[in-house]
């Protein structure tokens, strides 16, 4: 099977690249597009650090053959901050000390974005459920859960004042 040109909408921009058959979305983002925020932790869909949003849904990019999502809208951590301004999830992660080594952070933030997009006022149990596929080995789950709840609060507050 020959390589093919794949087109994706990545963080609001149309990007085209050549992908070998079976190339993963993760490999294409990192190697073809130079978007290295999503990380390879296990390459078997178990750790969640490669999570990106595919048409708004969090997916383990290491398990997605890129040709199966051709034409989709992909959102990565690089697309979260706008014009150098951090969004509520990013700033809450900083303020609540929800990062340590930083390797799980891209995946954690992306699942948080997907959660808050569909539910602006999640319960603690909802947050825990949302990050249940993401491994943090520095064991900072509690600050991460607190940060996501804090981000939700900030986002709701901003929505009211706007």
């Amino acid at each position: 099977m020959p390589s093919q040109i794949v087109s994706l909408d990545v963080n609001g921009e149309r990007r085209e690249f050549i992908a070998a058959p079976g190339a993963t979305l993760l490999a294409c983002l990192r190697e073809s597009l130079g978007l290295t925020a999503a990380k390879r932790g296990c390459a078997q869909g178990a750790c969640g650090t490669c999570t990106v949003l595919v048409d708004g849904r969090p997916e383990a990019a290491c398990l997605v053959a890129v040709e199966t999502v051709a034409g989709s809208a992909i959102r990565t951590l690089e697309g979260v901050a706008t014009g150098g301004d951090l969004d509520e999830v990013q700033s809450a992660f900083i303020d609540c000390f929800a990062t340590q080594c930083g390797f799980c952070t891209p995946g954690m933030i992306m699942v948080a974005e997907a959660l808050l997009d569909r539910d602006p006022d999640p319960s603690e149990a909802d947050v825990i459920e949302a990050i249940s596929g993401n491994v943090c080995r520095c064991t900072g789950y509690r600050p991460i859960v607190i940060a996501i709840l804090e981000a939700a609060r900030r986002r709701r507050e901003r929505a009211v004042t706007r």
């Binding site: 290295t36 925020a37 992660f93 900083i94």
Partner: peptide, 21 residues
């Protein structure tokens, strides 16, 4: 005291070895 590396972590700009290509 904010972590000096946190901004890089939350923006995906922290460079891990495998980000070098």
């Amino acid at each position: 005291v904010r972590r000096s590396d946190a901004r890089g972590h939350v923006t995906g700009r922290t460079e891990f070895f495998e980000d070098v290509a």
